[in-house]
Simulated scan of single mutants.
Amino acid sequence: MTESTHHADQSDGLADQRAGSGIVVLTAAMQLLHMNRQATELAKKINAAEQAGSAARSAHGVLPTALTELCGEIIKALHVRTEAKDWEQFELKRVSGDPSQPILLRGFGLPDRAGVEHARLVVTMEELGRRQSLNTDHAREKFQLTNREQAVVEHLAKGWTNKEIANALLITEQTVKEHIKHIMRKTTATTRTGILVQIFNS
């Protein structure tokens, strides 16, 4: 690698981190209005991860299932949160893609006085860098998680169900639920996704 290409690589990497967010804007009818280059790249990664998880699933065009499901939740929320100010402190989040390099999706609505059908959906996508992808050791110290709770978090990040986690850890589903309850209390999260957001941002 020559000196100049090495520098170019480094500055590209920095630019990527700064311009890191993918942005997708859709109508309430799920018509795509805008999708920046970063979002297109990240959507490809999520699609690849989703298809790897289930070979039978056919490609959903450009938009990954995780994204379309999140948009569905935004549309539901728009029926309740009809004013722009209702969205100032509120966003829907989910983590998807490959667990070794998860992608955080944050979604919110831009309501329109003319009704939900005129609203816009905005989703930002950002890669939770590999470095922090599953930095559960740091999270364990920060949130005082037990070894078992840390193992539960690692499986949650793979998108596993309580039943799958129970089977993997040879415990009952009820015990998994108890662990998740404790983890929620420790991370002040109210949902499974919330736990992951806390852990990844820790």
Results as ranks from 00 to 15, higher is better:
Thr5Lys: 11
Asp12Phe: 08
Gly13Ser: 09
Leu14Ala: 14
Asp16Phe: 06
Val24Asp: 01
Leu26Thr: 06
Thr27Cys: 03
Ala28Pro: 05
Ala29Asp: 15
Leu33Glu: 13
Arg37Glu: 14
Glu41Val: 13
Glu41Arg: 14
Ala55Asp: 08
Gly72Met: 12
Ile75His: 06
Lys76Thr: 15
Leu78His: 05
Leu78Thr: 06
His79Cys: 04
Arg81His: 13
Arg81Trp: 06
Glu83Phe: 06
Trp87Thr: 10
Glu88His: 11
Gln89Cys: 07
Gln89Leu: 11
Leu92Ser: 11
Lys93Phe: 04
Pro102Thr: 12
Pro102Val: 08
Leu105Met: 13
Arg106Glu: 15
Gly107Phe: 04
Phe108Gln: 15
Asp112Asn: 15
Leu128Val: 13
Gln132Leu: 11
Ser133Gln: 08
Ser133Lys: 06
Leu134Ile: 09
Asn135Trp: 00
Thr136Ile: 12
Lys142Cys: 08
Phe143Cys: 00
Phe143Asp: 02
Phe143Pro: 00
Ala157Val: 08
Gly159Thr: 04
Trp160Cys: 03
Thr161His: 03
Asn162Gln: 14
Lys163Ser: 13
Ala168Phe: 03
Glu173Met: 05
Lys177His: 05
Glu178Gly: 01
Glu178Phe: 06
Ile180Gly: 01
His182Val: 02
Thr188Ala: 13
Thr188Phe: 03
Ala189Gly: 06
Thr191Arg: 07
Thr193Phe: 00
Ile195Tyr: 00
Val197Arg: 06
Gln198Ser: 12
Ile199Arg: 00
